[in-house]
């Protein structure tokens, strides 16, 4: 293991190309609304604006087709409320 050399933030892949075929019927993420505290981090940090807040401020996957599985949302979720289908 050598010293990390970059800021480490996962590169967001270009949005628009729905190469994973995500849709409202095939969501990229599972969100545990019971654990979510509506902190807004995932909504704000998502580089492709997948989420929109619901009435309580919790994330809804409004644009699932834009998800690039970049991991930014769930590595920044302080409450482990987002599980990605990404393997």
């Amino acid at each position: 293991m050598t010293a990390p050399t970059d800021a480490g933030e996962a590169e967001a892949k270009p949005a628009g190309k729905n190469k994973h075929n995500f849709s409202k019927d095939n969501l990229p993420l599972e969100i545990n609304m019971g654990w979510c505290k509506a902190c807004n981090l995932c909504i704000a940090l998502c580089p492709t604006q997948v989420f929109e807040p619901d009435r309580d401020g919790k994330p809804i996957q409004a644009r699932p087709e834009a998800c690039t599985l970049c991991t930014i949302c769930w590595v920044h979720c302080p409450d482990f409320a987002i599980v990605s289908k990404h393997k």
């Binding site: 019971g34 654990w35 979510c36 505290k37 509506a38 902190c39 807004n40 981090l41 590595v75 920044h76 979720c77 302080p78 409450d79 482990f80 409320a81």
Partner: peptide, 13 residues
């Protein structure tokens, strides 16, 4: 769960 921390707390990250 969830934890005792405030919403968005860096501790969870």
């Amino acid at each position: 769960f969830p934890s005792v921390w405030c919403p968005g707390c860096g501790n969870g990250i």
